[in-house]
Amino acid sequence: MDTGLQQVSLQRVKPKSENRIRAKRMKALYLMMLLPMLLLFLFHYVPMYGILIAFKKFSPGLGIWNSEWNQFEHFRSLFQDFLFIRALKNTLIISLLKLIVAFPAPIVLALLLNEVKHVLFKKVAQSISYLPHFMSWVILASMVGEVLSPQRGIINHVIHMLGMQPINFLSDKAFFIPTLVATDIWKEVGWGAIIYLAAISSVNPDLYEAADVDGAGRFKKMIHITVPSLVPMIVILFILSLGNILNAGFDQILNLYNPMVYDVADIIDTYVYRKGLEQFQMDYATAVGLFKNVVGVTLILGANAIIRRRSEHGIW
């Protein structure tokens, strides 16, 4: 009886001792993690104290804590503000269009690049496709403005040669949102394809060899082997994209839009920018930003829960 108790106690102590030994071996890695975790805490968690501004009648002279509580006044007035309703509607429209059109683009590009057998062409095409990702929207907006210019742009030059009137893509409400979606794809499609190409490279080559023995062509191998291997990555990125449904691209829109297209281009982020920095209504702008973030977190949690119920894939 005593021997059995001793064995049970040893089994309980053994994992703890193994964990301590493993922790000592990884001490250098823990020390390396200390600085990033400290920076994460200082720059991402400590500033959350500023969320209190959304619940106060903020006065810079009094400071955040000493300012008077507003009894949720800003949150009640959100949906009574026509400009906020317009910005919310525009944000949802632009984000959904990007999700529908731009989200599949990197998947398609990765599948196409994976089928290219010429190594040099594949590398050059991939390098060209992800180069715009490393440029800021300040630079890209000036390039887009020149290419789409009604007087100097090559696109309008072709349109004029076809006998049609030039189009002011950045000032016409009918063309501005398609221009946003197209330029967003141009900037991010190559970078997104890298993630899917990395997932494709981890597919077991034996599956392709078995498909060759069965006489499957390249298209069937892509449909029945490559695409299913991408499903876990697609699901994770789709959930994260849903969480960003209220982020329609602040940098892009701020550098491309103008007052002529405010009706279709003004989004929550640009609305917050004007309210907070231009009109100095920091408390109200914080309330709008907090609303947006709460919706984003809710969408991530909800989408992940639904997908986990129906499949084995998800973020956690």
Rank of each mutant, 00 (worst) to 15 (best):
V138S: 12
V138C: 04
V138K: 04
V138M: 12
L140F: 03
S142H: 02
M143W: 07
M143Q: 12
M143K: 00
V144F: 12
V144W: 10
G145F: 03
G145Y: 02
E146W: 11
V147R: 03
V147D: 06
S149M: 05
P150R: 09
Q151L: 10
Q151N: 13
Q151I: 12
R152S: 13
R152H: 15
R152I: 14
G153H: 09
G153K: 11
I154T: 07
I154V: 15
I155M: 10
I155C: 12
N156F: 11
V158L: 14
I159S: 07
I159W: 11
I159R: 05
M161A: 14
G163L: 02
G163Y: 03
M164G: 03
P166W: 10
I167C: 04
F169Y: 14
F169Q: 03
F169I: 04
F169V: 03
L170R: 00
L170G: 08
L170K: 00
S171N: 04
D172E: 06
K173N: 12
A174E: 10
F175W: 11
F175Q: 09
F176D: 03
F176E: 11
F176R: 04
I177V: 14
L180I: 15
L180A: 08
V181D: 07
V181Y: 06
A182R: 02
T183N: 06
T183W: 10
D184M: 09
W186Q: 12
W186C: 13
K187G: 06
K187F: 13
V189M: 11
V189K: 04
W191T: 10
W191L: 06
G192L: 13
A193E: 01
I194Q: 01
I195C: 02
I195L: 08
A198I: 00
A198W: 00
A198Q: 01
A199G: 13
A199Y: 08
I200A: 02
S202E: 06
V203Q: 00
P205V: 10
L207M: 14
Y208S: 14
E209I: 12
A210S: 15
V213K: 01
G217M: 06
G217R: 01
G217W: 04
R218G: 06
F219D: 03
M222V: 11
I223N: 01
I223S: 07
H224Q: 09
I225Y: 01
T226E: 05
V227P: 04
S229W: 05
S229N: 15
L230A: 15
V231W: 07
V235S: 01
V235W: 08
I236P: 01
L237W: 07
I239M: 01
I239K: 09
I239Y: 08
I239A: 10
L240M: 09
S241C: 13
S241L: 10
S241N: 13
S241H: 04
L242Q: 14
